[in-house]
C-alpha cells in the first residue's frame, strides 16, 4: 500500500506543470524516502530529476517500494480538477493497475476522487555523478524566466558567460543580438531577490532556449533558481520545492546538454 497526503496540494499541481510539457510519461518511484521521478525528454537533450521528500507530506505510508508508470498529461489534467487550496491524497495498492487521487476542500465539505490507469513503462535511469560545479548562480526565478523569454525573441540559443563580475546572457539571430548582464547583489533586504555568483572558474556555455523555457515552468515553485555550470558538462537548473512556511519539501532539477563545437 502506498498513500501520501499533502495538505498544500497546490505544490503537487505546480510540480506537474513544471514537467508535463517536457515529458510525456514517467515513473514515480515511491519508497520510504519519498516520491522520486527521473526521466529524459524524447530527444535525450534534457532530463528531469525530482524529489518529494516523505517528511514533506503530512501522512506518508509506503509498505514497499513501488514504481508508478504515469501518463503525465493525464495526471496533469486530473490535478487541474483540484482547487488550489485542496488537500491532495495519492493512493495505490501494491501491484495495482491504477492510482487514486483524492481532493478534499479545506473545510472537508467537498471530497472528490479520481482513479487513473497506470502504465507499464520500461524506464532507464541515468547515473548523474556528484559534480563540483565551476560556477553556481543563484537568482530570482522570475528574473531567469524573463531572461529566457526575452532572449527567445532574438535566437534559439543563449550563451551564458559567468565571471567574477557577474553573469552575461547573450543571444543573436537574423534580427540582431541582445545581452543581459546581471551583477551580483551587493546587499539586498530580501534573500529571494538576490543574485549570487559562487565562482571557482569562469565558464562560458551555450544552451537551447527552447529547453530553458520549458524549465522556467517550475518558477511558481520557488522564488529562487540556481544554475550550476562547468565547462563541457550539462547545466543543472534547480528549483527547490518549499512550502508556505519555507520548509523544504524537495526539489525539481533539470539537466540540459550544452551546444558544443563538432
Amino acid at each position: 500500500m502506498f498513500e501520501a497526503r499533502l495538505v498544500e496540494g497546490s505544490l503537487l499541481k505546480k510540480v506537474m506543470e513544471s514537467i508535463k510539457d517536457l515529458l510525456n510519461e514517467a515513473s514515480w518511484d515511491c519508497s520510504g524516502n519519498g516520491m522520486c521521478l527521473q526521466a529524459m525528454d524524447s530527444s535525450h537533450v534534457a532530463l528531469v530529476s525530482l524529489m518529494l521528500k516523505s517528511d514533506g507530506f503530512e501522512n506518508y505510508r509506503c509498505d514497499r517500494s513501488i514504481s508508478l508508470g504515469i501518463n503525465l498529461a493525464s495526471m496533469s489534467k486530473i490535478l487541474k480538477c483540484a482547487s488550489n487550496d485542496d488537500i491532495i491524497t495519492i493512493r495505490a495498492e501494491d501491484d495495482a493497475d491504477a492510482i487514486t487521487f483524492m481532493f478534499e476542500s479545506p473545510k472537508q465539505d467537498r471530497v472528490s476522487d479520481y482513479e487513473m490507469k497506470l502504465m507499464n513503462l520500461d524506464t532507464e535511469h541515468l547515473g548523474i555523478p556528484d559534480t563540483e560545479y565551476a560556477c553556481v548562480i543563484k537568482m530570482p526565478s522570475g528574473e531567469f524566466s524573463r531572461i529566457c523569454r526575452d532572449l527567445s525573441v532574438l535566437g534559439d540559443s543563449v550563451i551564458i558567460c559567468c565571471t567574477k563580475d557577474g553573469v552575461r546572457f547573450s543571444a543573436k539571430g537574423d534580427l540582431g543580438n541582445g545581452n543581459i548582464k546581471l551583477a551580483q547583489s551587493a546587499n539586498v533586504d530580501k534573500e529571494e531577490e538576490a543574485v549570487v555568483v559562487d565562482m571557482r572558474e569562469a565558464v562560458t556555455l551555450t544552451f537551447s532556449l527552447r529547453y530553458l523555457n520549458f524549465f522556467t515552468k517550475a518558477a511558481p515553485l520557488s522564488s529562487q533558481v540556481s544554475l550550476s555550470m562547468s565547462e563541457d558538462v550539462p547545466l543543472m537548473v534547480e528549483y527547490k520545492i518549499n512550502d508556505k512556511e519555507g520548509d523544504s519539501k524537495g526539489y525539481v532539477r533539470y539537466y540540459l546538454a550544452p551546444k558544443i563545437e563538432d
Binding site: H125, G127, P129, T206, P258, E261
Partner: peptide, 14 residues
C-alpha cells in the same frame, strides 16, 4: 556552428 549534444554522452546508464 555549435550543435546540440545529448545527455547520454555525459551520463551513463545506471
Amino acid at each position: 556552428v555549435k550543435n546540440q549534444s545529448t545527455l547520454t554522452s555525459f551520463f551513463k546508464k545506471a
